[in-house]
Design a protein around this nucleic acid. Sequence first.
DNA 1: TTGCATATTCGACAAGTGTCGTATAGTCTC
DNA 2: GAGACTATACGACACTTGTCGAATATGCAA
Lengths: 139, 139
Amino acid sequence: MARSKPNKKSEQIKFNAELTEAEWIVMKVIWENEPCTAGTVQEALANSKDWAYSTIKTTMDRMVNKGFLEIQKIRNLQLFSSAISEVDAKRGEFRKMLQRAFDGALTPMMQFLIEHEGLSKAESAQLRKLVNKAKNRKD
Amino acid sequence: MARSKPNKKSEQIKFNAELTEAEWIVMKVIWENEPCTAGTVQEALANSKDWAYSTIKTTMDRMVNKGFLEIQKIRNLQLFSSAISEVDAKRGEFRKMLQRAFDGALTPMMQFLIEHEGLSKAESAQLRKLVNKAKNRKD
DNA sequence: TTGCATATTCGACAAGTGTCGTATAGTCTC
DNA sequence: GAGACTATACGACACTTGTCGAATATGCAA
């Protein structure tokens, strides 16, 4: 009851985070290496992204402003950590898609998957297994 | 084999269309009313969106440039029709999400759905039914 | 202390998006 | 043909996103 009322907007952000393309790429590295510096992120991405240091740093600074990352300062080093969880980010991305393309309804999306995304026999078997497991969870 | 080589880029657009938020909203109206005018779209959205006529028209013109809509001119009237299918748009949106949040892998997404999106008992039952139906399709 | 090697700060720029306002041009009706 | 309407054509503006470069500040080795 007496829980200090959290900012509605920021909760919204936390639980339904919407990252941009570049932010997703950076975020994945953060989740695997946090806390880490911008330089570390650059190195981690060296193979896949030919980004200048400042590109990465700017992106990360913006993410701090948006509340996606947090900075912990040591000397003149900035160690970045995630301020949102992987689950929240995934949920945000998933729900945005669901809202836009399926008006927020899950079942039509499933229908679509099966009808148009050609679930292979293996995949649907897998799915079936998952679903059965889900059967024994909360309702 | 002798199929005249189609433009790779435009195929990409067609089969994996990526619409913006506003474009999705307009597109849904188009799919339901095509061919129709910008004015018709505005009226159809009157309840949900308080958009100026020019806002809608600009958006639609841009969609024509991107190849998402087509114009058929009658007198000085422009009748807009979709140039991409609902399925293609949905696929585009779905795949973008899948790529970003799940590195393109379906199974982890399913796992996520069940673990974190709290599929209700009814939903998982539904899902199970769909999956079983899918079992009898191609592999 | 001098100076390299890093980090950080900041401003910039081109595209793309959301949103309009306004100037024009086409039609239809008197 | 003139006026009233309706559409169209266009340019504009603020913001966001992807990308940097350059200037400045720090820490450490020689």
